[in-house]
Design a protein around this nucleic acid. Sequence first.
DNA 1: TTTGAATTGTGAAAAAAATCACAATGCAAA
DNA 2: TTTGCATTGTGATTTTTTTCACAATTCAAA
Lengths: 206, 206
Amino acid sequence: MKRIAENTINRLIVYKKELERLRKDDVRNVFSHKLAFLSGFPSHLVRRDLMNVGYNGSPAHGYDVVELEKCIADFLCTPGSVRVILIGVGNLGRAILDYCQQQNHKISMVAAFDSDKNKVNKVYHGIYTFHIDSIKNFIKENDIKVAIITVPASDAQEIASALVESGVRGIVNFTPARLQLNEEVYIENLDMMLGLEKVVYFVDGG
Amino acid sequence: MKRIAENTINRLIVYKKELERLRKDDVRNVFSHKLAFLSGFPSHLVRRDLMNVGYNGSPAHGYDVVELEKCIADFLCTPGSVRVILIGVGNLGRAILDYCQQQNHKISMVAAFDSDKNKVNKVYHGIYTFHIDSIKNFIKENDIKVAIITVPASDAQEIASALVESGVRGIVNFTPARLQLNEEVYIENLDMMLGLEKVVYFVDGG
DNA sequence: TTTGAATTGTGAAAAAAATCACAATGCAAA
DNA sequence: TTTGCATTGTGATTTTTTTCACAATTCAAA
Ligand SMILES: NC(=O)c1ccc[n+]([C@@H]2O[C@H](COP(=O)([O-])OP(=O)(O)OC[C@H]3O[C@@H](n4cnc5c(N)ncnc54)[C@H](O)[C@@H]3O)[C@@H](O)[C@H]2O)c1
Ligand SMILES: NC(=O)c1ccc[n+]([C@@H]2O[C@H](COP(=O)([O-])OP(=O)(O)OC[C@H]3O[C@@H](n4cnc5c(N)ncnc54)[C@H](O)[C@@H]3O)[C@@H](O)[C@H]2O)c1
């Protein structure tokens, strides 16, 4: 099985989301051009990407929306359900907890953690908040593999190290800190400031 | 002047941030390996990227932290100051306003907009919130080129169209909506769910 | 001064990604 | 049935990006 490029994965996730939307609108079939338009990529790239997931459309009807969505989901290996935790129930953390509740996804938020006694043992947007001291046990007992970090940047490295030590293998890092981890962990840095700087660059020069 | 790849820009922004940190720690010089380690990219890629910005280090002392930071900043064209607005002062919007205040950047948040009368004419994290109806005038009068969208997904397209019509050329879109805009506008989609799905993919299979 | 060690900058090679272009397909309409 | 059309899937090609590898550079120490 050949390695798939990160960009391809990004696009597949977008296709999946667009297919989900089409399905909910009761659209049965979709052509590569349409999917390309919806997701913002060229249509030949859509077709090339779909070669990777091994789904065959028909020249006459294009792709079956339901089948293709399922095929991409299988390929992306989103299994029955993935349990995720969040660390740092501050402004951003609560916004994310809220956002996750709204999506009825295969990815489910199962717990939050904070060091602030005023936040511990409270429920935010349906998610129970535990004290940070219990996180290692929680991760091991519940076999958590993915976590979201929304603590202050100064605490991010310490938290990340503890997560990885306990078995976490993927981190979504919203802080501006660049995490240094020796073990092999997939880190997705979502620092808004970087995105904003990129936009500024492409707007006034690039 | 040759076109620079988006990935190169991403990396340059990270280098710049690491250099800023080094400067604040009074570090004078840095080698490509060190910068590579800090930013998480291979050192030959660091050197290759730096060729693009036209800064020359010395084999003996590596790069001058202050000069290189300045050189990248110039290259990225972050001019005196860029004014940015935010639309949608909800959970996420307020978290971002707070975050922007903490950074003392060349990018400055100058106003927020909302449709909710309870939020209009209030100040959140130092930023005044105007009614959404006044946004077109504001953009034109203040020559705003970049905006951040944190309204509900269902309103995102309408807002985005209005922004672009008024002169905005770059958008950071935090909603799951895929924006369709005919004019040439740079859009940075920061949908957390996509990042999370990517992490899940790379954790349990890729 | 000379040697040695570390690092830069960059041509060249390799690898990866995107694009092109078209045969093959399947359907609708004549 | 046959023709025409729009679309898929994919080899081939082009372009882009990354990696390799090493001459050139600089300095410190002998
Ligand atoms: N990527 C983005 O778009 C974006 C936007 C806003 C903020 N941020 C970043 O996200 C982080 C959080 O921002 P915020 O505005 O929510 O901050 P916040 O101060 O409101 O929240 C931080 C939370 O983390 C908790 N915390 C602190 N130390 C902890 C520890 N060691 N263990 C567990 N919990 C701990 C605090 O009690 C608090 O509840 C910051 O790093 C900020 O820079 C990112
Ligand atoms: N990318 C992420 O990580 C992330 C995280 C959380 C939420 N989100 C998304 O961000 C968006 C906002 O999330 P939230 O939790 O802050 O929601 P929210 O409901 O708390 O806030 C939305 C705000 O937009 C305002 N608004 C609504 N319609 C408007 C209009 N037409 N013009 C101006 N203002 C308007 C509302 O009054 C409210 O203040 C949603 O689309 C959500 O899906 C993204």
